[in-house]
């Protein structure tokens, strides 16, 4: 049996629908001539193939996917317009409700390719099924430690900005328009930095806004902000920022004007302290 025949047999489908192929038939004959050991090998290959096929056949897509696909196809063909404000519904319907951008995609993006669009369409489909959108309710405050871990994970994975703009006023307007928490008065040196954009996340039902700031050389700083009333164990109001290393990043946390803030970066702690000074 040649190497080519071996490869051909391994490429032949296990239900033997390729047996009509003369080359496959010849390879099988070569295996038979080679003796029992080769035949046993071929059978064990087939057994593994069949088990892999059967096993992968058990993989279930997310329950919401079917409805989302149908809705997305209608949306792109213009036969359905997704509702404009699905904030509550997205929070209620996404498969992983822990962390999800909850705002509309910016005009210059192709919205259908974005994961949040999947959330929208899922929500729209769910709404169609249940006859109305669920009302989002804030259940309880979230522990500071949990929120910090979630924000660190978001930052480490790479943020996806809902609005990309260097304009402070545009960012402020966008956050205000989406009823997101926002720090009104930044520390002076932090406020002097260039802006990149912003986003709003829903984390266990709590809205957290993100502003992305830039140091020279496009080094990003991520400033997250939420209402202190929603955070259990938030830092004392107006206390000095606590700057420390956190899972490979530099993290500063503090509270200011009834808001709890997190600043994630890869900068040296001293630089962060200076910026927050």
């Amino acid at each position: 049996m040649t190497e080519e025949q071996l490869q051909l047999l391994r490429a032949a489908r296990p239900d033997r629908q390729d047996d009509g192929d003369p080359a496959v038939a010849e390879a099988r004959a070569a295996v038979a001539r080679a003796g029992d050991t080769s035949l046993a090998w071929l059978e064990s290959e087939r057994a593994v193939d069949l088990k892999m096929k059967a096993s992968l056949g058990q993989v279930e897509p997310p329950p919401s996917l079917e409805a989302a696909l149908l809705m997305a196809m209608r949306a792109v063909r213009g036969t359905v317009t997704p509702p404009e404000n699905l904030r509550e519904s997205v929070l209620a319907s996404v498969r992983n409700p822990e962390v999800q951008p909850i705002t509309a995609p910016p005009q210059n993006m192709v919205p259908i390719s974005r994961r949040r669009w999947l959330g929208w369409t899922t929500a729209a489909a769910a709404a169609a099924a249940f006859g109305g959108f669920r009302v989002w309710r804030r259940i309880s405050s979230i522990p500071m430690v949990d929120l910090t871990a979630a924000l660190a994970a978001i930052t480490a994975k790479g943020v996806e900005l809902g609005l990309m703009s260097p304009e402070k006023s545009a960012i402020a307007g966008w956050l205000r328009e989406n009823r997101a928490p926002r720090l009104g008065k930044f520390p002076v040196k932090l406020d002097a930095l260039e802006r990149k954009g912003c986003q709003i996340y829903g984390i266990q039902g709590h809205a957290v806004s993100l502003e992305c700031l830039l140091l020279p050389g496009m080094r990003e700083l991520h400033l997250y902000c939420t209402a202190s009333a929603e955070v259990a164990g938030s830092p004392a109001n107006e206390a000095a920022p606590d700057v420390r290393s956190y899972e490979g990043q530099t993290l500063a946390t503090w509270s200011q004007a009834d808001l709890t803030l997190w600043l994630f970066s890869h900068e040296a702690p001293d630089l962060i302290r200076e910026l927050l000074g």
């Binding site: 897509p61 997310p62 996917l65 989302a68 696909l69 997305a72 196809m73 792109v76 063909r77 498969r95 992983n96 259908i112 390719s113 974005r114 994961r115 669009w117 999947l118 369409t121």
Partner: peptide
């Protein structure tokens, strides 16, 4: 899972 769903959806959209 989420990436897989996203790519599947994009495929469906392209098909439409």
């Amino acid at each position: 899972e989420a990436d897989a769903a996203d790519i599947t959806q994009q495929t469906a959209v392209k098909f439409a």
